[in-house]
């Protein structure tokens, strides 16, 4: 995935699109936007940095996972098998990108209780329990179910400024590869050797 920082306005559409797609419970964010600020008034620079799982080619999380629940698929997407995860959270601590979320149980957004407060909440709970489980770690999976159907990930689909492009990094002719080449796309923390699959196009 490529995210164009020049286009992003930090509207948090991705954050909520992800929530709506995966029904993540309170406190769990697979996608989010972090706001950075540097400089001194009046020469100050503020940047929105949309974050999600980097689906690294050399994923730290996969390395440290003692259970084998975290797996890298042949297409590069890193997934968590929620039926195999024990919730030790080594991965969440080892991930340099804060992409992993532990959730001890599903709770209702309105009441904070384990009992759903509406039919939508019940639907949400059902979806989440199918997607993940209680007491385990979860994370963005590039909307693997959507991608397999030929759809774009939910955050890419929603983004009002169309700052996100999804595609095949291994194909040098793909739009993402071309964007990275032309706009000098960069990875976050390349020094950790994670070889992240999310590239950022500089804003300035």
């Amino acid at each position: 995935m490529v995210i164009d920082l020049k286009r992003c306005t930090s509207c948090h559409s991705c954050t909520v699109a992800c929530k709506a797609e995966h029904h993540t419970p309170p406190g769990v964010f697979w996608a989010k936007v972090v706001r950075l600020e540097s400089g001194k008034y009046p020469t100050v620079v503020r940047q929105a940095l949309p974050l999600l799982c980097m689906n690294c080619k050399e994923p730290e999380c996969e390395k440290v996972c003692p259970t084998g629940a975290t797996k890298k698929r042949p297409d590069g997407i890193v997934i968590v098998d929620s039926k195999q995860c024990v919730g030790c959270r080594y991965c969440a601590v080892a991930c340099p990108y804060g992409a992993r979320n532990f959730s001890s149980d599903w709770t209702d957004y309105f009441t904070g209780e384990k009992k759903p407060s509406s039919e939508f909440a019940a639907h949400s709970k059902k979806k989440w329990m199918k997607e993940s489980d209680k007491g385990v770690v979860s994370k963005c999976n590039f909307c693997v179910d959507r991608v397999e159907k030929g759809l774009k990930p939910a955050c890419v689909n929603a983004c009002p400024t169309e700052a996100r492009t999804f595609g095949d990094l291994d194909d040098p002719e793909s739009e993402v590869s071309q964007l990275i080449k032309k706009r000098r796309g960069m990875q976050l923390h390349p020094e950790y050797g994670t070889d992240a699959s999310v590239y950022y196009l500089p804003a300035r």
Binding site: C11, H12, S13, T15, V16, A17, K19, A20, N157, A158, C159, P160, T161, E162
Partner: peptide, 10 residues
């Protein structure tokens, strides 16, 4: 244009 914001999504 097929896009949607956080408000709409929620």
């Amino acid at each position: 244009y097929g896009n949607i914001c956080a408000k709409g999504l929620s």
